[in-house]
Structure formats: structure tokens, C-alpha cells
Design a binder for these strands. Sequence first.
DNA 1: ATACTAACGCAGCGATCTTTGCTGAACTCG
DNA 2: CGAGTTCAGCAAAGATCGCTGCGTTAGTAT
Lengths: 196, 196
Amino acid sequence: MSEASGSRPGGRSARVRASVHRAVEDLVAEGVRTEDLTIPVIAARAGVHATTVYRRWGSVAELIASVAEHRFTGDVVVPDTGGLGADLERWATDVARDLADPDTIALMRASIGAGETASCACTADRRTQIAAILERETARGGAVPELDAVVDGLLAPIYYTALFEPAGRDDDGPAPGSRVRALVGKLLGKDQALRP
Amino acid sequence: MSEASGSRPGGRSARVRASVHRAVEDLVAEGVRTEDLTIPVIAARAGVHATTVYRRWGSVAELIASVAEHRFTGDVVVPDTGGLGADLERWATDVARDLADPDTIALMRASIGAGETASCACTADRRTQIAAILERETARGGAVPELDAVVDGLLAPIYYTALFEPAGRDDDGPAPGSRVRALVGKLLGKDQALRP
DNA sequence: ATACTAACGCAGCGATCTTTGCTGAACTCG
DNA sequence: CGAGTTCAGCAAAGATCGCTGCGTTAGTAT
């Protein structure tokens, strides 16, 4: 977690930023309503003066955007299994596992509510990861689908389910990963993994 | 727009509710930040006393949930063209057109930020609409995909794009509906509608 | 090692939000 | 047509939030 964006990277500034970020994550995870997530509350939890938060971030929305940017980047390592299908499956499984955490979903909810910038921060890294996977397969000499097609067929369902179906899918419990496998199969145009 | 959920359907109560709901929609559409969307502001816009809003809804989150529930139900009419593919295409096009409105997206963003209940209100009706389309095709004697498959292949991409890609897709401008057609084609496993 | 600068803590002010008890009007039922 | 209930308007008080100077501390550079 590189906390090194500022004129004074090392020392107190970084400590304060980390503390405030963690406070936001914790409060959101505890189910604090967005309207109750106020700067004095965050500052108190972080052990930092509210003035500092006002000066550095200005508003709760910007602060949440900052937290989302740091939280949703660099968590998932792009795998390299040697095949496109397996790469996508493993990657999507990691993403789905990440989004299965209620705390993560709560933060994403808050980010989406905070505005466009914070929303995009939740998925910006995903696109680049997919692009990397596709590029690798291209380097292997294989044919790859469009980037947008992967987003539609794989990323969108995972995010949609996490956001709008809190109960989850029934077929996701008994056989973990079966849904991801089916999505990848459908995406790549093969029916190999489609038999129920 | 049936504003008839309450102990006193007709009269002042309904008028106040409609007024407050419209005020919320307008303010959200005008780009008012969530943190500035406060109850006194809403009440002032609605021409209603703040006390009334406090007593009836309690918090902004509950109010937004209420608005979302009324806004995202009954807008799209389930079509009946005689074929499953055409039905899905037309229905999805309507949904996409609805979500292309920035005001609608702003309200959905606020709803997602308001919590789980409000979020689900954004898509609850969509599932039943898909189910109706599938049931109709079944009555015709045709084979239909799983409900969840339609959600994954059609609904999820539309919602994902609306939320996380505010700029929109490039291929959505020149040929409106082409993306929906491609999604439906992929979903039904036929390449008939895939030629650009 | 010392001077410099950026960032944090502190205290208090003004504005806004939220709540509460009461009064009056409007809708429904007998 | 009249009685009862529900609901909105009103005003005031308490609490909280967001913001602005100023002093102090902690990194950074010479």
C-alpha cells in the first residue's frame, strides 16, 4: 500500500492519511449510514483533528473517492496460467471473492453514492487487468475477444450481483467458481463448461 | 403513477408525498451533491415544512429509497412482438434508454449509496419483467434461457455501463441499439443478429 | 547541526440541522 | 351532516457541523 503521494511522503502526513483512510473503511464496514458519516466522526475515529481532514480532503465525497482509489487498486494480481480461459477464470474468481466481502461492498456503495469520480475508481483497475490478460494471450498467438466483450460478459455480471443481489446466487454456494466458469465459457463461445 | 400507498390515499397526504418525491428527483437531477441534499432543502423545494418530512420519512436515506421504489417500477412496458429475441431486444433497448438519462443515473447512484434496500428497488422490477418475457415465450412453446442467464447477459452489462462508464461506449452512438442486439445474440447463442 | 517550511492541533464562531409540543385544517366514517 | 382521527404548519431550543486565525510540532534541506 504505497502511501507516497504528496510533497512530504514519509512521516506524519503519511501516518495521518493512513489513519483517516482506515477510519473511513472501518466506519463504512460497521454500517454507519452515509448521512452519519461526517468529518468530525471520521476524525475522532482516526485520532486526528477534524481541521486536518477539512483541509486535506475538503469533503466526505472526496475523502471517500480517495479511499476507494487506494482500496480498489492493486489488490488482484493478474494470473498467468498459460491459457486465456484459465487466466480469466482465476482472475474473475479473485474479483468475485474480493467483492464477496460485505465491507468491500459497503465501501463501493458509498463510493458510487459519492459521485462519478469515486465510482470509476472502483473499476478502473479492472479494465487494465483484463487488457493485460488479453495482451498476454495475444503475445502467445491466440485469438482474443474484445475488451468490452469481456467487461460485458464477465465483469458486469459479477459487479451487478454484488450490488443488486445481496443474497447472492443459489448456484454460487454449493460449487464455488461454477458461475464464473459458466460465464467464461459463454464468453469464449465454447459450451465446454455449460452442462449443469 | 399510483400514489396510493398509505392510510389516506386521496387528498393532502398524497399531494405532499408527490411533491416531496418530485423535489428529490429534481434536486438529484440538478446535480446537488448527496451531502447537500438535506431535508430542509428538500422541504423548501417541495413547498412543504421540514417537520413533515422528518416525521414521515425520518432520514434522507429512507426518503430516497421511497423515491427509488416509485421511480423504478412500472416505467418499462413489457413488449410482445411474437418472438423471444425481438421481445428482449425491444425491452433491453427501453431499459438502456431509461438509464441513458443522467437524472435517472443520479437517482440510482443516490439509491445505491442509501443502502441495500434502496439499491434492490432499482432492479426488482426488471427481474419480474424478464420473467414475464420468458414465461410468454414458454407459453408459445419456445425454449428459453435461465432467468439468471438473462440477467447476466443483458441486464448486468447495461447497468454496469451506466454506472461505471459514464462516457458510454463508442459503438453505442452511431448505431443505437447495436450493442443491445449483440448482447441478445450472444445470450441466445445465435449469431443471426451479430452483423454490424 | 541548524534553519526552514509544510502540516497538524487548538479554540471559537456562525450557520445549519434536528427535534419537540402545540394548534389548526382536511379527510373519512357513521 | 357532524364527530373523530390523521396529518401538516408553526415556533423555539438544543445539538452538531463546517470554517477560519494562530501557535506549535515534525520532517527536510543546507
